[in-house]
Each structure stands twice: as C-alpha cells, then as structure tokens.
C-alpha cells in the first residue's frame, strides 16, 4: 500500500497546501490553487471557494487526517472550519503560478510607474510614458525581485536604462541662501553636485537657484549644514522640473 511507484501515485491536481506547525505538530489543509492569497487580502470572501475540504490533515498528499486530540491540544478546539481559517491566515502558503505571475506583473508595472514618474527625457524635459518604460525594461531584460521594494528596484532600473536610452531623473530646483563670506568657498564645493545654475545673486547674501539631480540632495543638504553651521538655508522650489501643459506642434 505504501509503496510509492509511478503507477499507483495519485497526483493532486488543483491543490495548494497551507502548512502550520503548532505544538510540535505539523498541520496542513488542502486549498484550491490561486486562491489563498486572495483570501488573505480579503478579495475572496467565500471559504468554500478556498478550501477543498474542511478537514485538517497531517499530510495532504498522503491523505492523512489530523487526529482530534492533536487538534484540541494544538488549537484548543476541534471545530475543523475554525482551525482551517486559522491555518489559512497564519500558515505558510504555497504561492501558486498565477498568483506569483500577477504579483510579478504588478510589481513590474509599479516599478515602471515609479520610473516614469521620476524621470524625464532630457531633450524635451517631458516624462516618458509608462508603456514605453515597460518596453524598455523588457528590452534590458530586467527581472523583478519580489523581496526588494519597488522603489529600490526603480532606482536600479533607472541606472540601467541610462545606458540604453536618453533618460534622466527629473531635476530638482533648489535655492540656496548662503552668507557671503562662506558662500564662495562653499560654491566651489557644491559645484560638482549641481547640474545647472540658473541664477546667482550676490547681495547681502549669496542666493543661487539651480537644478540638481535628486540623488545628490542629501549630500548637498549635509554640506550646507556643516559648512555654514546652520546659517545658510536651502529651499526646494520644484521637486520635478518638467514641462507642464500640452504642447501642440506648430
């Protein structure tokens, strides 16, 4: 009976197993594929659409049902449905193909949206569309990592895309107000971090309006704070320097 050969092996189809260890015992329930994540996120509200059967197993593939006393000792109840719900919400899930696929796709889109949001075409100062970024990401064969945040990955993607196409992070427009005596010295230090200086005004104080790469912000911020000992100030005029409004070709 227990000889496990290809001929008498019964494959479970359409089954996803959710496991949980409790009181030194392993409990499993048999669920439908692609449904467990939906239950957890609250999209699926019908338990029968998630569970194959309401009984709790020790081993689903062997069909061994958990003993009543084990259940009581582990969960304090023998209500199988209640236990199933507990296992469903807290157990380790087997993520099914479609679920994984949608998750990856969603993250991929999310990354593309973030990239499109942060970047511009340096020639036109206009953003790229998400679809275009998605296509570019596919061109560079970017693979999504599920364990990293989308924002982190987006920054990585920008770096990689730069080699392929004309793309740049949208510049930030800043205004520094620096005391004159320290200003000149500081300006030299700031220079490599600034992309474009739009205006300079030497009055009682040195006032500079410039565009920078958002990545350098922290550095600049710290530099100014350190060098002027809190006397200089810095103001963000524009987070993203992009063209606004529709443009008609004429």
């Amino acid at each position: 009976m227990s000889i496990f050969t290809p001929t008498n092996q019964i494959r479970l189809t359409n089954v996803a197993v959710v496991r949980m260890k409790r009181a030194g015992k392993r409990f499993e329930i048999a669920c439908y594929k692609n449904k467990v994540v939906g239950w957890r996120s609250g999209v699926e509200k019908d338990l029968d659409e998630v569970l194959q059967t309401h009984s709790v197993f020790v081993n689903v593939s062997k069909g061994q049902v958990a003993k009543k006393e084990d259940l009581i000792s582990a969960f304090g109840t023998d209500d199988q449905t209640e236990i199933c719900k507990q296992i469903l919400t807290k157990g380790e899930v087997q993520v099914s193909d479609k679920e994984r696929h949608t998750q990856l796709e969603q993250m991929f889109r999310d990354i593309a949206t973030i990239v499109a949001d942060k970047c511009v075409n340096p020639e036109t100062k206009r953003p790229y569309t998400v679809i275009l970024i998605e296509r570019a990401m596919k061109d560079i064969h970017y693979s999504v990592k599920t364990n990293k945040s989308t924002k982190q990955q987006a920054l990585e993607v920008i770096k990689q895309l730069k080699e392929k196409m004309k793309i740049e992070r949208a510049h930030m427009r800043l205004r520094f107000i620096l005391p004159v005596n320290e200003g000149k010295k500081l300006k030299e230090k700031l220079k490599p971090l600034i992309k474009v200086i739009e205006s300079e005004d030497y009055g009682q104080q040195l006032e500079i309006v410039c565009l920078i790469d958002p990545g350098c912000f922290r550095e600049i911020d710290e530099l100014i704070k350190k060098e002027t000992k809190g006397k200089g100030s810095l103001e963000v005029l524009n987070l993203k320097d992009v063209e606004e409004g529709d443009e008609k070709f004429e």
Partner: peptide, 18 residues
C-alpha cells in the same frame, strides 16, 4: 491596473473550474 496598483480582483473566479 495600468499603474500597477493593487486591484481588488480575483485571480481565479471559480476555484474548482481551474
């Protein structure tokens, strides 16, 4: 969906019919 945000949609409508 276009923006890659979470959409409250079931991946599979009828589990048994997969």
């Amino acid at each position: 969906k276009r923006k890659g945000l979470y959409v409250e949609e079931k991946i599979v409508e009828h589990a048994e019919k997969q």
